[in-house]
């Protein structure tokens, strides 16, 4: 794999001038992922922050062929593009090697686009799907999704006298995708960009569907100072809330184990104002519940990776 200084001389596939918030994790991830292949790529993007902010007509930030269809169908849309490519290549109308990539947020992937994704994975299209998980419907103004963490405030999981934020745990989408037994599944984080590029390279290289779930800190949704995006991502990994791992041909591989340096979840929570209410003494039980859940999932993952 190329080092950063070598990567820096490759073409920029996402131009500046897009209108994502300052400090947004989405474009950091999108830029890194698109450096995972030197081949031309066709990109589909689900409705969401990345889509609206990069293509405000008559401007586009994309230096690659790009399509937005709707919210729930990035995977189905890229399926059609990939099917077209297969046939047109067979007919000799195209001779280039082209790769296919879909981006969706957690709303477009965990929730409304899950069926479309599952179908495309099952059919075995040769494409890479990258979920940009910022843990909520941020583009529509911060509502809860099935990816929003337990206890988090959003505009549809408000904190009040009776309810104290979201009352359900985050869906384990990466495991759901792994259950499709596709060639490559991974979880990654923007702070570990070289790990992300390496995973993107693997994902583009396999024949068949590949999926990478990347945690993408959101400045207005998580409520933290904009320069801390990478710190937020790193802490999610250090607390084992967002472990880095790969599932390669059904073999689970843990990429990072903080061991004794595993941080308590409160360290991550206290960096974000969406969890501010959990800092009150009367809500410590919520933090404890979340910690239990994080620990349970982490131990379970280690077992799957043969480290239990």
């Amino acid at each position: 794999m190329a080092n950063i200084r070598e990567l820096a001389l490759t073409n920029e596939r996402l131009a500046p001038g897009h209108r994502l918030c300052p400090g947004c994790g989405l474009s950091i991830i999108a830029r890194a992922v698109m450096r995972g292949t030197k081949d031309p790529i066709v990109v589909a993007t689900a409705t969401g922050c990345l889509e609206v902010s990069t293509t405000i007509y008559p401007y586009t930030a994309w230096n690659v062929p790009w399509i937005h269809n709707a919210f729930e169908n990035a995977a189905a849309t890229i399926s059609g593009a990939e099917a077209a490519y297969k046939v047109l290549k067979k007919k000799g109308k195209i001779n280039k090697e082209i790769k296919f990539l879909a981006f969706g947020g957690d709303g477009g992937t965990y929730d409304i686009g899950l069926q479309s994704l599952s179908g495309a994975l099952e059919r075995g299209h040769n494409f890479v799907y990258v979920c940009l998980d910022n843990e909520g419907y941020m583009n529509t103004g911060i509502q809860r999704s099935s990816s929003t963490p337990y206890g988090a405030w959003t505009n549809t999981s408000q904190v009040g006298k009776i309810h104290k934020g979201k009352e359900q745990f985050k869906k384990d989408l990466t495991a759901v995708v792994a259950a499709h037994h596709i060639p490559y599944v991974a979880q990654a984080s923007s702070h570990n960009y070289m790990d992300l590029v390496r995973k993107a390279e693997k994902a583009f290289a396999v024949k068949g569907p590949a999926f990478i779930n990347v945690l993408s800190p959101c400045v207005p949704g998580w409520k933290y100072p904009m320069q801390l995006t990478q710190k937020l991502a790193k802490m999610a990994v250090d607390t084992c809330f967002w472990p880095l791992f790969e599932v390669e041909n059904d073999k689970w591989i843990l990429n990072y184990d903080p061991g004794d340096n595993k941080k308590p979840i409160i360290e991550w929570l206290k960096m974000q104002k969406r969890f501010r209410h959990l800092m009150k003494p009367e809500n410590t039980h919520i933090v404890e519940q979340l910690q239990k859940n994080v620990d349970f999932r982490w131990e379970n993952l280690k077992k799957l990776c043969g480290k239990g």
Partner: peptide, 13 residues
């Protein structure tokens, strides 16, 4: 359709 790839550069942020 937008035919000028990367023309967001015309929009200075």
């Amino acid at each position: 359709k937008i035919l000028e790839a990367g023309n967001s550069k015309e929009y200075k942020t």
